[in-house]
Amino acid sequence: MEYLDFELPIKELEEQLSKCRVIGEESDVDVTETCKQIDKKLTQTKKDIYKNLTAWQRVQLSRHPSRPYTLDYVRAICGDTFLELHGDRTVKDDKAMIGGLGKIDGQSFMIIGQQKGYNTKTRQYRNFGMANPEGYRKALRLMKMAEKFGLPVVCLIDTPGAYPGIEAEERGQGEAIARNILEMTRLKVPIIVVIIGEGASGGALGIGVGDRVLMLENTWYSVISPESCSSILWRSWEYKEQAAEALKLTAKDMKKLHLVDDIVKEPLGGAHSDRETTFKTVAQVIVENYDDLKKLSPEELVEERMEKYAGMGVYKD
C-alpha cells in the first residue's frame, strides 16, 4: 500500500494498530482495549482527512498508484464475457485506448476507455494512458459498430491527456478528437461516460460526450492539468495547488457548473481502498442509467444530448 503525503497520519495509525495486534498475539498482555482505541482513532482520522480534501488532494487521489484502471473495472464487471477488439483499421492498435464488448447484467455494452499501466514496463506499453489519433479512431470505429447493432456505449475516462507527440500531430490528433466529439453528439445509441481517474482536456472529451456523464468522487476533469496551468499562468510548477482550486476541477464543482450529470461515491479512503465496492457501485450506476436511457427513442436520445451540450457556457447577453 502506498500513501500520499496527506495520508501519513493514517499510515502511522495503521502501523500502530498492526504492531498492537502483533504484541497481542505474541505475548500474554491484553491489548484488546488499546487496539480498539487505535482503530477508533484511525476511523476518525480517515473521516477527517477524506471529508475535507482539497482540490489538489483529490487530484493526487485520482492518480493514486493503486487506483483501479479501466481494464480492472471491465474484468471485475464483465468477467469472462468481455471480448477485446483491436485496431483502428488504418495504422495501429493503440494500447493506451482499449475497447470491446461485454455483458453487464445480461445486456451487451460496447466498453471503451483509456488504459494506464501499473509498473514501469506496462506504463510504457500503455503510453501512460495517453492515446494517439489511432486510439481515438479505434474508439470511434467501435462506437459505430455499437450503433449499427443498437448496443449502448460505456466510456471510462482516465487520461493525463492525448499524447503530445510528433507522429500524433502528423496523423492528426486534433482531427481525430474533433471527429469523435462530433460523431458522439449524434450517435443513435445511449452513451454513458464515467470519469474514473484523470479527465484531462480534449484527450478526455474525445471519448467523453454522452447522455450521462458521471464523475467518481475523487477524480478531476478540466481543460488542463493543474501543473500545466500553473506553469503557463504562474510561469512556475509551484502553484499547482492554487491552480487546482482555481480550475474548479473536482466532481462537486463540475456538477455545480452543470458540466457533468452526477457524482459517484467512492469508499472512504478512495476507490483503491475498497476496489470491490467501487466496481459494484460503478456497475450499478451503469445499469441504472441505461435503464433510464433505453426508454428513449434514438431521436429523443440525440435531441436531448444536443440540447444538453447547447446549454453549456456562461455569458452576458
Partner: peptide
C-alpha cells in the same frame, strides 16, 4: 493486429467459441 487491421487472433481450437461469443 499491431498495425490495426485485426480485432483479434484466435487459435483454431478456440475459433468456434470466439466466433459465437462475438
Amino acid at each position: 493486429q499491431e498495425h490495426g487491421f485485426l480485432d483479434f487472433i484466435s487459435h483454431r481450437r478456440d475459433l468456434k467459441k470466439k466466433v459465437n461469443l462475438y
